[in-house]
Nucleic acid binder design. Structure first.
Lengths: 333, 333
DNA sequence: TTGAAAGCGCTAACAG
DNA sequence: CTGTTAGCGCTTTCAA
């Protein structure tokens, strides 16, 4: 492997000049630059970035902690992160944690060992065993965000969004609105349930725990949850699912059990994934700017890293209710 | 930041001993180990991995080149890569290339600059401008693989799989089988078209270019392609789509235009994604072991890196035809 | 089993 | 504008 030293010898300059030609060419005379460039071309020299990173104490790398890379919503967020990272000269270390704390710690450790400059956490956990570490290392929280932490945050107003979609259902005349929610310990889940409750309460409807079931965001779990919901005694006339995957699973199961959508049961989702529009019937849902989440998160961690200002910033990104055919006014009996 | 030097002073040993305690404890007496461990705990020392990697000339990092991270099939492959990487002590640098050569080169450059030890390429391009580089740097090709290259490969027998699904359609009595294929320059596309042709030819059916259209693997493009197919004069009685996303888009569009599936038109997909089973009707498709692809690819690149044996190995993973309700025997008129 | 010392390839004062 | 030089924090001979 060619090193900077060999290039310097061939070019007849010092290593410092080669280094400068590479990172601050404006401080090197054009004539010298040419000599260096020629030596570089001649030797096919590639700077050892590992050495550079070590020397400059910057890994130029960000760890992204994602609960499940196979979830299309998260993939889109990551795509946004990656695009902005590339523009800013950062690389992305992917940490698929599967929601396991242990793996979060392992990956978060990379920032302690200088392998990464910062962390973007897509889940609502503190990825450090020691909470104090969150103040020492650049970290930002996006999508499913912790409450009451000082970590900068980019998120949706999930309470408001869930409230709005529930109200949409209530306006259509639904009084028994079932819920297929996500994992109970997620802040997103809690917030959306809160928004749902607020709408229910505001409309003087009763909050019925028996038509609220849990899923895991998979299509599969949506179908299973719908089955449980429809087997029970108190049949809902509408079901709000916390993502489109579960909604599509639910729709399948509901039709399977002989109900019509939206005539018998309305179904709403969340995310507006690429299938929502093509589901049968097309899915009423809430769209979120997934790529923007990622892009903003990356910009923010960049600022945190480079200004060392680990402040508390909370950004809310807009959502939009997408009204399609899977929800309709309740049937008059 | 604490360094190895400070730890060594506190423990009253040399830096070499601290280093050994960390990476080859069996070469250090238990008594000394205890002293060192205590000093480490006391100072909250974290070794600078950047320095270690630099010194040992190993980044312990693999670049993964993926055309589109938001494609669930690729996400699954990446999940497989990541899981095995973690077991082997490697981290994953994510390179979402969007199919752009330029971005492939940028990321592939990381292996030239010692930032990564190897490359896993999910697309059928050589990510180096200079073909010779493929012999110099560890690289393996998975999923959509180049032909006639010496790069080790893990793939599906796409010719056979496409042939099998086409024959399934032919056995059901279909004689005019449309195709919604992927991007033309992809080897996967070429192979599947080849398998399709083989089946067509074998059954003495005519190969009709007018019922073969291109999509880009998105749900959207599937719907658009189906529209074009059904607007044309020669209506196919079956359509084979090169992934499930396009199949689901096509199904939507076909129903929209008043045809029944599978009564009027049969539709088959590829991948067996998580929606296939819940589509209406449930999708006949080909399942592939996505996570296995990733896992095997990671194991293979590990071997290549550590043995320096950059040989030509080609592995084929099994597929399986999943027969659901979107395909059926052709209607007798 | 341990320590001393060299040095990985690069950047960044500092001096000229 | 350019060169000299001193390390960054770690691993790894080599010798004890």
């Amino acid at each position: 492997m060619t090193t900077i030293r060999e290039v310097s010898k061939i070019a007849g300059v010092s290593v410092a000049t080669v280094s400068r030609t590479l990172s601050m060419p404006d401080k090197v005379s054009l004539k010298t630059q040419k000599k260096v460039q020629s030596a570089i071309a001649q030797t096919n020299y590639k700077p050892n970035i590992l050495a550079r990173n070590f020397r400059t104490r910057k890994a130029s790398t960000i760890v992204v902690l994602v609960p499940d890379i196979a979830n299309p919503f998260f993939s889109r967020v990551i795509r946004g992160i990656e695009q902005t990272a590339q523009k800013l000269g950062y690389a992305i270390l992917l940490g698929d944690t599967q929601g396991l704390r242990e793996r979060e710690y392992t990956y978060a450790n990379m920032v302690k060992t200088s392998q990464a400059d910062g962390i973007i956490q897509l889940d609502c956990h503190m990825p450090f065993a020691d909470e104090q570490d969150a103040k020492k290392f650049p970290i930002i929280n996006v999508c499913d965000c912790m409450k009451n932490s000082d970590i900068p945050t980019i998120q949706l107003d999930n309470v408001a969004a869930a409230k709005e979609i529930t109200e949409h259902l209530i306006q259509l005349g639904h009084q028994k609105i079932g819920l297929i929610h996500g994992p109970k310990d997620s802040v997103i889940t809690k917030d959306r349930i809160k928004g749902y409750s607020q709408a229910i309460k505001k409309a003087n409807l009763s909050f019925d725990q028996s038509i609220i079931v849990e899923g895991d965001y998979s299509v599969n779990s949506g179908a299973q949850a719908a089955y449980n919901l429809l087997k029970a005694s108190a049949l809902p006339t509408a079901i709000f699912c916390f993502n489109d995957e579960m909604a599509i699973g639910a729709i399948h199961q509901i039709k399977e059990m002989g109900f019509k959508i939206p005539e018998d049961i309305s179904v709403a989702g969340f995310d507006d994934n690429s299938f929502a529009e093509y589901s049968d019937p097309p899915l009423t849902t809430v769209s979120q700017p997934a790529e923007d989440f990622g892009s903003r998160a990356m910009s923010m961690i960049y600022d945190v890293i480079n200004d060392n200002e680990i402040g508390t910033t909370n950004i809310f990104l807009p959502y939009k209710l997408i009204n399609r055919k899977s929800t309709a006014a309740i049937k008059k009996d």
